[in-house]
Design a protein around this nucleic acid. Sequence first.
DNA 1: TGTACATCAGTGAACGCGCGTTCACTGATGTAC
DNA 2: TGTACATCAGTGAACGCGCGTTCACTGATGTAC
Lengths: 242, 242
Amino acid sequence: MSPARTARALARETITREILDSARARLGTDGAAALSLRAVARDVEMVSSAVYRYFPSRDALLTALLIEAYGELGHAAESADAGVTDRSDTAARWLATFRAVRRWCVAHPGEFGLLYGTPVPGYAAPRDTVDPATRVVRVLVRIVGDAYAAGARPPVVPAAAATTGTVAPALAFIAEHGLMAEPDLSDDELPEVVRRALMAWTALFGVLSFELFGHLVGSVTDPEAWLDQVALRLAADLGIQA
Amino acid sequence: MSPARTARALARETITREILDSARARLGTDGAAALSLRAVARDVEMVSSAVYRYFPSRDALLTALLIEAYGELGHAAESADAGVTDRSDTAARWLATFRAVRRWCVAHPGEFGLLYGTPVPGYAAPRDTVDPATRVVRVLVRIVGDAYAAGARPPVVPAAAATTGTVAPALAFIAEHGLMAEPDLSDDELPEVVRRALMAWTALFGVLSFELFGHLVGSVTDPEAWLDQVALRLAADLGIQA
DNA sequence: TGTACATCAGTGAACGCGCGTTCACTGATGTAC
DNA sequence: TGTACATCAGTGAACGCGCGTTCACTGATGTAC
C-alpha cells in the first residue's frame, strides 16, 4: 500500500508476469484446454509446486488469463475509438474499432481461442470475467448510439423481421450503462438499432473466428481487406455513412 | 462388394459405429482436444489396443468424426433447402437453411465445437475434409444465385467498400461448380453478391458460435428467434425478399 | 543498529491418475480345395 | 460336406510419457521490539 515496495513484492510481481506470459504462449501452442501448470512451471524454470504460490489452481490461472485477455482486447477497442479525433465521424470510429479488434486477435491467436473458441471442458468462468467481456460490444453500441443521436436513421426492415423482444437483456444493459445517451429513436427504431448492433458484433467475431480457425482459406485472399469490407457493409446496413 | 455380407463384416460395421458414437459423445463432455482413444475404448467396453483394429490412430478417428459431422451438417442444409417446394421462394429457402443448420448445431454441440471451435492442437485436417466442409456455403450461394437469376438485385454499396478481388478464390469456386448458373449480373454486381453471401455464411456461424459458446447470455433471450431475425436481415441486405 | 520471530518463495518427493501406441498372443471366422 | 490354412478381432502387458495437487522441508526476506 505504501511506495516502499519490498524486494519480495517486486519479485512476486515479476514472477507472476512471467507465469502469465508463459501461460499465454502455451495457449497458442497447446490450446486452452490443454493448458498445463507443469508445462508453465517448466517454461519459467520452477518446480511445478512453486506455481501454487502464485495461483491456487489451474482454474485460477485460466481465470486470470481470461480477464487479462478480455481487458487487453477491450482496451484496444476503446482506445481505437477514442483515437478518432472527429467524434462525429462515426463511420471512421466504427472502422477503427473493427481494425483494432482484428489486430489484437490476429496478434494473439492463442488468447483469441481462449476467449472465443470452444469453452474449456470442466472450467466455468467466474463472474469477474463477464464485465471485461462486454467492453467491445459496448464500444460498438456507443458508436451506433452517437450516430443516431446525430441524425442517422436505421434501415427499414420487412415487417416479418420486426418481432418482439429477443434483445430485452441488451436493452436493459444499454439503459443501465447509459450507452445511448440521446437516442432520439422511436420505440420501433431503438430495438431495431440494437439488433443491428448485436448482429454486427457477432459478425465481427464470426469473421475473426473463421479467419483464425482456418475457414476462410478457400474463399478469401486477404483477410485484413476482407474485414474492412465487412465493417463497411455492416455500417452501411446500420445507416452509418461517412 | 457382394450382398453376401459376412458376420465379420457386419460386426465390423456395428463396432465402428459404436466407436464413432462414443467418440462423438466424448466430444460433448471432454472437447475435441481431449478426445482420448482409451476413454472411447472404455465406453465401448474394449481394451484400448483393440480400437486400433478400427482406426489406425487418434488422428484418423478425429478425421472420421470431422468428415461425418460436416457431412451431416451439409446434408441438413441441403435437404432443408430442397424441402421448400416453391423453388422461386428464395427467402423461404434461405430461412429454412438457416434453421436447419442451427437445429443440427444445437443438437450436436460437441461436434459443432470440433468443426467450428478452436482447432485441435497438433492435428491437421487432411484434404478429404475440405469438400464436406463447403456444403453449407454452397447451399447459401446457390439460393442467392437463384434469387438473382429471378431478378433480385443487390443493394447499392458505398464506393469505398467496392474494392478489388478479395473474394477471388470464392468466385473461382462458384464458376467451377456452376453454383450461379444464370447470374445475369454485371461485373460489379457479381463480386458484391458473393461478398454478401460469404458475409451471411460467416454471420450464421458467428451467431451459432456465440450461442453455443455462451456469449449471447447477457444479450439475447431466445436464441432460436434471434437466429430467425438475423437470417431475415441478412436476406434483406442481400436483396432477397419474400 | 541489532536481534528474535514470523512470513513466504521455492524444493523435491509422493499420490493416484491419465494418455497413445506397440507387440506377442489366443481363438473365432472365413475361404480354398 | 469336410478339412487345412489364412485372416482378423480382441487380449493383456508393457513402454515412456504426461497431468494436478499436497506436504514437510529449507532458507531467504521482512518486521517488531
